[in-house]
């Protein structure tokens, strides 16, 4: 937004498209839902805390799905939890995004072969925008994933429903 700053400095008039402004507003305040499922959630909390400070990106955890834009699926999705995850997703207002954090929610992770209770990838129940690999991913990786999501939002077209896998 270098252009924007310059324009504001010299006269206070900005000309842009509505699409740009909306996307810029959305990607600058991606509020994730404050919930975690397993060990990855610890790393997510560390990312939100002062050392890595997600507030810098306008990412502030919200206590309710109704106020959230992003769902960070941080941890093992068990079959028992699967229904709850889906319901939480349905309670989020659109546009909504999903970031799958860690091997467990990407693919079942350590429970891929021997886990009678684990869903082998959260994408079997809800659409996912960004996958972050790792067990657990470091905070840098999570931040990288969130920035990738920002780039995705930046390219969104007005009136076109966003696609996830």
């Amino acid at each position: 937004m270098g252009l924007l700053d310059k324009q504001i400095d010299s006269g206070g008039v900005v000309i842009t498209t509505a699409e740009n402004v909306l996307n810029w507003a959305r990607l600058s305040s991606m509020w994730p839902m404050g919930f975690g499922l397993a060990c990855c959630a610890i790393e997510m909390m560390a990312t939100m805390a002062s050392n890595y400070d997600l507030d810098r990106f306008g990412i502030i955890p919200r206590p309710s799905p109704r106020q959230s834009d992003v769902m960070i699926v941080a941890g093992t999705v068990t079959f028992k939890m699967a229904e709850r995850v889906k319901r939480l997703y349905q309670q989020m207002p659109e546009p909504r995004y999903v970031l799958s954090m860690g091997s467990c929610s990407n693919s079942g992770g350590p429970y891929w072969q021997h886990g009678y209770h684990v869903v082998k990838s959260v994408s079997r129940i809800i659409p996912v925008d960004v996958y972050v690999p790792g067990c657990p991913p470091r905070p840098e990786a999570l931040i990288g994933g969130l920035m990738l999501l920002q780039e995705k939002i930046r390219k969104e077209k007005f009136g076109v429903k966003h696609e996830a896998v």
Binding site: F79, K86, Y89, Q113, G115, R124, I126
Partner: peptide, 13 residues
């Protein structure tokens, strides 16, 4: 590995 179908998975959104 569990028993296939012993715990139902919700349909994909």
């Amino acid at each position: 590995i569990g028993i296939e179908g012993s715990i139902p998975l919700p349909a994909k959104e």
